[in-house]
């Protein structure tokens, strides 16, 4: 079994955003970075599948040199190898361009299972995995929250308001996963140490002409006025009155 998991490096934004003076991007000065949440679960799923069925897993990202940090995190958790499609200009890559670069890279690598996040935390494009699947002529189910491999088949479930939608695909296949499919592990110290020794394969992808061009980022209007009801236990009488006023009691 050969599993590919594609991830995205995103800033760890915490409580709010600062934009760069030209409003073109999020100011990431002083921010840490992380693997985007759905992809963190995709990494965990890849590791679990290999632990259960044997084989190897590969983590791939398109991003700056610094994205090695996220690839190392995946390696530390148990992924076998890593590929970095290195470009410092990653913010000018639209979903179509990213998908094409990934498809070209992995086309002849013989993966049985390709996992993506349903959408990245920052761009929310909902399409890279679906695009790669079509470019490789593979079937794809998006937004899955359960996955089971049986022989050469994958049984995946989507969580809908009506219930669990069950899909069954022959491998090779592509899935985009959603957080909730598992609870990702933390890397062990031993994992972190041994991940340092694994070489990361670096390639320089060629970006095709963009189909999208960002003009600017802006913050949406927020219209709440804070009223402090009090401090500590002295506030509870006032809170209870407010709860009654709001119809909660």
């Amino acid at each position: 079994m050969k599993v590919l998991v594609c991830i995205k490096r995103v800033p760890d934004t915490g409580g709010g955003f600062r934009l760069t003076p030209d409003s073109k991007r999020v100011d990431t000065t002083n921010l840490g970075f992380a693997i985007s949440p759905h992809e963190e679960c995709a990494v965990e799923e890849a590791i679990r599948i290999i632990e259960k069925h044997g084989g190897s897993s590969t983590v791939l990202t398109l991003g700056p040199t610094a994205a090695q940090e996220q690839l190392r995190e995946a390696l530390a958790k148990g992924v076998s190898s890593a590929i970095l499609l290195e470009t410092e200009d990653y913010e000018s890559w639209d979903a179509g361009a990213v998908a094409q670069a990934i498809a070209e890279t992995v086309r002849s690598m013989g993966f049985d299972l390709l996992l993506f996040g349903n959408e990245s935390a920052d761009a929310c494009n909902y399409q890279v995995g679906l695009r790669v699947a079509h470019l490789l002529d593979l079937p794809c189910v998006s937004g899955i929250k359960a996955l089971e491999i049986q022989e050469r088949r994958a049984i995946a479930k989507r969580d809908s308001p009506e219930g669990w939608e069950v899909y069954e695909l022959s491998l090779p296949a592509v899935f985009t996963v959603k957080e909730g499919i598992n609870v990702p592990r933390h890397p062990s110290l031993r994992g972190i140490m041994s991940a340092k020794k694994i070489p990361i394969e670096q390639k320089k992808p060629i970006r095709r002409d963009p189909q999208m061009a960002r003009e600017l980022l802006k913050k949406p209007q927020e219209g709440r006025q804070l009223e402090i009801l009090g401090q500590g236990v002295e506030a509870v009488a006032k809170v209870a009155t407010k709860l009654r006023e709001l119809g909660a009691i």
Binding site: F17, M212, R214, E215, L216, K219, P220
Partner: peptide, 10 residues
Amino acid sequence: NWGGSLLEEI
């Protein structure tokens, strides 16, 4: 973008 905490003009 970011689930709606930022808006992008594109």
